[in-house]
Amino acid sequence: MPAPERIPPGSVIPADLLTVLLKGRLTVRGRVREASNAVLYCGIEYDGVSVSCVYKPVTGERPLWDFPDGTLAQREVAAYEISEAMGWGLVPPTVLRDGPYGEGMCQLWIETDAEGAGAGLLALVEDEEPAEGWKAIAFAEVGEGRTALLVHADDERLRRLAVLDAVINNADRKGGHLLPTADGKLYGIDHGVTFNEEDKLRTLLWGWAGEPLTSEAVEVLARLSGDLAVGRSLATRLAELITAAEIDALRARVTTLRTTGRHPEPSGDWPSIPWPPV
């Protein structure tokens, strides 16, 4: 029997990948030890196609007092649905399916560039102002009473991700959740703490806070607003993943972004940067 064809991310259409992720035979190969919840590295095969993926079973999730409804897995899939609706492809193909340890999230494994997650996108500098091509986040203590300025790249891929995070109310956008690839793409992962009804946006991507949204983002948000209308297919799919109140809050965030026309700013009611930041 010939070996299954190895397909790199992006070489087949998303619908094909979703079929592989949904229907393929899942084989656990290892565990991502540093994760706070169960994260399993797996191989998946379907109809002669083999890819690698991440499988996060619901049984391995730790309860969160401030996210009492639904599951991390459901919210991860909901984040993928929103990413696809926005047309930016920022979240790897993600499905909800049964696996060796029960129902869970299954997401295409993304190979990062040689320098690793977040490479070239974040930095600590000793200057008080960011250099050209960089945006300031905040000052951070680096030991011995010294501080340094934490900055992120002034990168359109990051700016799109900042808009996505504002829409889904991402409470945990860390540097390690940024996956740049060798072909120039950027993915964001780990969207289990999203869609809360309350403002919980915590991110390292505050560099555009208060600035006008790009014309592209304005157009994308207008389209997304229509897709979230009651009875539309996106709204129907989301209703299977998050609560009605969370969908209402999602619609309200999109409306706010369209009304202000600007990137959100930290509210001051919640820590604005996740810890640890990387």
Rank of each mutant, 00 (worst) to 15 (best):
I242S: 08
M1E: 11
Q107P: 11
Y46F: 13
G175I: 13
G226V: 04
M105E: 12
R232V: 00
I82V: 11
D165T: 00
E34M: 11
N196V: 02
L221T: 04
W134S: 05
V278G: 09
R75Y: 00
A249M: 10
T19P: 05
P264M: 01
L250A: 08
L21E: 12
S272L: 07
W270H: 15
L205K: 10
I44V: 13
W109L: 07
F139K: 14
E115V: 04
G87Q: 09
G102N: 02
W65F: 15
P130F: 08
A252N: 11
E111V: 13
T203C: 06
R258W: 00
A153P: 01
P274N: 00
L150G: 07
L40E: 02
P14T: 10
D183F: 05
I168L: 07
L108H: 12
A38H: 04
E141G: 15
G99W: 00
L250V: 03
Y101R: 06
V220C: 09
A209W: 00
A78L: 07
Y101L: 04
D154S: 09
V254E: 03
P180D: 03
V12D: 07
V230D: 14
P8M: 08
A123K: 15
E211G: 05
E84H: 12
T214A: 02
D69L: 11
W88H: 14
G89V: 05
G176K: 12
R232G: 04
D172K: 02
A136K: 02
D227R: 14
T59C: 10
P68Y: 05
A244M: 13
G70E: 08
D269S: 12
P212T: 00
T59A: 14
A171N: 12
R251N: 00
L257G: 04
E246H: 05
G10K: 07
E61D: 10
R232A: 06
L179P: 10
D127K: 11
D248T: 15
V28S: 00
W109V: 01
S36E: 15
E128T: 14
Q107C: 10
A249N: 06
P8Y: 12
Y46K: 05
L205G: 06
A119H: 11
G226D: 10
R262P: 03
L90K: 03
V151T: 10
L18P: 02
L21Q: 10
T214Q: 06
A78G: 07
E198I: 01
E144H: 15
P14F: 02
L108R: 11
G261F: 13
E111H: 12
T94R: 02
K174R: 15
T94S: 10
V167S: 08
Q107L: 10
K174L: 13
E198C: 07
A182H: 11
E246A: 13
T214F: 04
S272D: 14
S272C: 02
P277F: 15
V254M: 06
I247P: 03
R146Q: 15
K174H: 06
A244K: 14
D47G: 07
A38E: 12
A222K: 09
P180V: 02
V58P: 11
A209S: 13
E5L: 13
R25W: 01
L21N: 09
K135H: 10
R31D: 02
R33C: 01
I13V: 13
D66C: 06
A119S: 15
D154I: 01
A15M: 09
